[in-house]
Nucleic acid binder design. Structure first.
Length: 402
RNA sequence: GCGUCGGUACUCAAGUGGUCAACGAGGGGAGACUGUAAAUCUCCUGACCUUGGUCUUCGAAGGUUCGAAUCCUUCCCGGCGCACCA
């Protein structure tokens, strides 16, 4: 327990309402429960757990992170929990066991996390966010502790989880340790002794497991806020496993471009859950879309908003400019690699890692993907000598031969 | 333990002695059309030289054969059923 001068708790009704609704998919046990706590001005703790499974955070993480930040701004205590222990175990996946990560992988993934998270969360000052690791407690438990914990849940409860049902239906294996995952993650709630947890809707089962455990072990009612997932119109999740993710370590230009390539159906949900635009603006955007405004314009606004959030207004403006210049007007991007020519194209391509194999480059040539920007002339033979000019390979790869 | 079915490229999934670098679908890349959208049409999607070929791949290792992803043996991993269950 630590005693510090608690900052003022904001009990503004509108802000609380916003906190509990914007981008929120579901709350447990119910909205009124959390509302009353918040209105009373109680100082609450809320945490978000993230497994360091990739080298960077991505835009999907942003949704709960920003919700966490919102809570911090209201004066409450927030905790950013890194699932360093759980990541070395492997979360059950839809189809199979996720490959467990090694300690080293986890540590290297971790490096960037705090840095990236600190763009949104305040890790300094009077009400600083805590940065914790679940190995602090999970690595210390012995088999007896684990059994005691496991005794609190039944197999039937576990089997309610969709992915397990699915795997049984598909006659795919389920390992015992996969049942432990919700327990471990749930135990985080107990160890941290929090008032609430926020996370993506895909984490609802695990979050509720924690709620259950906390109730049984400490007789405490944890609230759970499940955030909407950033999905494309087909309901597919945006995430690293789906390949359409926007990583937070990308350049502003790349991020801008990625957002622009989202499908139109993403515009409204993305505005709602990953930007700060007001509810009025949101309505306005919906109307414009229905009214036949070119969705591209709204998407540019969306991309600008998102890049601003991550990098600031200036960077965002530059990214937008670069995007319009490069793609809308078909001009050459400003910062491109310059290499000296004088040798066969295929060698240049390999040396510059523009392609992964010579075969791939040949295929691109055959497909007419390599051309000079100003004359539009296509390279038709991979063995021709690269001469001075600015070339593009496909849509996004550029190179300048000097 | 016994029986039985299965393990194929990024994913799903055909193929069950030569015509298999391996059907098809998804994903990814490229071209056309565009708003770097979606939809649609076309092409490509193991590596290396290249009209053709060489090499590496179908859970692992051996074997049979002129020739295997395909047959045999052993092993590893999984599903299901039966048996066992202090």
């Amino acid at each position: 327990m630590f005693f510090q001068k608690k900052p003022h708790i904001n009990t503004d009704e509108q802000k609380i309402e916003q906190f509990l609704t914007r981008g929120v998919e579901a709350v447990f046990p119910n909205k009124a429960f959390i509302q009353s706590k918040m209105k009373k001005g109680e100082s609450l703790t809320l945490y978000l757990g993230i497994d360091p499974t990739g080298p960077t955070l991505h835009i999907g993480h942003l949704v709960p992170i920003r919700k966490l930040s919102e809570f911090q701004k209201l004066g409450h205590q927030i905790i950013f929990l890194v699932g360093d222990f759980t990541a070395t175990i492997g979360d059950p996946d839809k189809t199979s066991v996720r490959k467990p990560l090694t300690r080293d992988e986890v540590l290297s993934n971790l490096k960037e996390y705090k840095k990236q998270a600190s763009r949104f969360i305040d890790f300094t000052g009077a009400n600083k966010a805590l940065f914790r690791f679940n190995s602090e407690w999970l690595s210390k438990m012995n088999f007896k502790d684990v059994l005691d914990l496991a005794a609190l849940m039944t197999v039937d409860q576990m089997l309610k989880r969709d992915m397990f049902k699915k795997r049984i239906a598909e006659e795919k294996p389920i390992h015992i340790h996969e049942f432990m995952y919700p327990l471990m993650q749930g135990y985080d709630s107990v160890a941290l002794d929090v008032d609430g947890e926020v996370g993506g809707n895909d984490q609802t089962f695990n979050m509720l497991a924690g709620r259950d455990l906390l109730k049984q072990i400490k007789n405490k009612e944890k609230f759970v806020i499940a955030m909407k997932l950033l999905t494309d119109p087909t309901g597919k999740k945006m995430g690293k496993s789906e390949g359409n993710m926007v990583a937070l370590n990308q350049t502003p230009e790349d991020m801008f471009g990625k957002v622009m390539s989202w499908s139109d159906g993403m515009i409204v949900p993305a505005f709602e859950i990953v930007t700060d635009v007001s509810i009025d603006t949101l309505q306005d955007i919906k109307h414009k879309l229905v009214g036949g405004e070119n969705p591209k314009n709204l998407k540019i606004k969306l991309a600008s908003e998102i890049v601003t959030l991550c990098f600031g207004e200036k960077e965002s403006e530059q990214a937008r400019h670069a995007f319009e210049q490069t793609f809308s007007k078909g001009e050459v991007p400003e910062d491109i690699e310059e290499v000296s020519g004088g040798k066969a194209w295929i060698d240049v391509a390999i040396e510059q890692s523009l392609v992964e194999s010579k075969g791939e480059f040949r295929r691109l040539i055959e497909g007419g993907a390599v051309s000079e920007m100003t004359t539009g002339e296509k390279i038709t033979d991979p063995n021709t000598v690269a001469v001075t000019g600015v070339y593009k390979i496909g849509k996004r790869r550029f190179i300048k031969i000097i």
